[in-house]
């Protein structure tokens, strides 16, 4: 057990270190989220300043699409610089690789949300907002873990297909829809009013989603890579 823990730590450090050196992914993802929020504002065609009703969508549509980009991006080194061959030869378990990548993606998304959640309050919400930021952040953390687990599993297949830039969102986003439903619902529950019962239900769902897909990944992940 401690051995696989060490493996996971080493792999996460590899990902984060690469990201710190280049800062390719996270900066672009953050910028993308801001742009997407502005596009949504203009797309609605309204000049209202208070869009609290749409808070969940305004937060989670940009983050979902940014997650697609980030997840796809995080496999570039694996594919182009043949990192994956090295990892597969090394005696690391495939499941440790999955967990490590899921942790890195969760990390990227948390950094992005550091921008997105305050921006939601500044741009779109005119009611009481800052008191519920903690609750939003908690739901976001749970959603990020779910996105990380699912995204790693899906991306490790999608990046080895032919039209990968297109295949990635097309297979990732439908599977992500339940997470979007829950994450947006949890956001609405605390931004619009203070509906803690449904907020708790959504959070339980997000945990359940992560656990179930971790199990599925555990059962199938070996098969993704054997050649």
């Amino acid at each position: 057990m401690s051995r696989s823990l060490r493996q996971i730590r080493a792999l996460v450090r590899k990902d984060l270190w690469l990201e710190m050196r280049t800062r390719d992914t996270v900066v672009a993802m953050g910028l993308f989220v801001v742009i997407a929020m502005v596009i949504l504002q203009f797309g609605f065609g309204t000049r209202e300043t208070d869009l609290t009703r749409f808070a969940g969508g305004l937060l989670w549509v940009p983050i979902t699409f940014a997650a697609v980009l980030g997840v796809g991006r995080s496999y570039v080194a694996e594919r182009e610089q043949r990192v994956l061959d090295g990892l597969l030869v090394a005696p690391t378990s495939r499941f440790a690789m999955l967990i490590a990548r899921a942790i890195s993606i969760t990390g990227y998304l948390l950094v992005v949300e550091l921008v997105a959640i305050p921006l939601l309050g500044v741009f779109f919400v005119r009611g009481p907002y800052w008191g519920s930021v903690g609750w939003i952040a908690l739901a976001a953390l749970l959603a990020d873990v779910a996105i990380g687990v699912l995204g790693t599993l899906v991306a490790s297949m999608a990046v080895f297909t032919r039209a990968r830039e297109l295949v990635m969102p097309v297979i990732f986003l439908p599977l992500l829809l339940p997470v979007v439903v829950a994450a947006a619902g949890a956001t609405h529950a605390v931004v619009g009013g203070h509906d803690m019962t449904s907020y708790t239900r959504y959070c339980v769902f997000l945990v359940g989603f992560s656990v179930l897909f971790a199990l599925v990944a555990f059962a199938t992940y070996e098969a993704v890579f054997d050649d």
Partner: peptide, 25 residues
């Protein structure tokens, strides 16, 4: 295909769960 068939089937109950939760809210 095999992996995706398993993943997709796992997401069926989750979809029901999520939509139900949203509906009851």
């Amino acid at each position: 295909s095999a992996v995706f068939a398993v993943v997709a089937f796992a997401s069926i109950p989750l979809s029901f769960w999520a939509v139900r939760t949203a509906e009851s809210a």
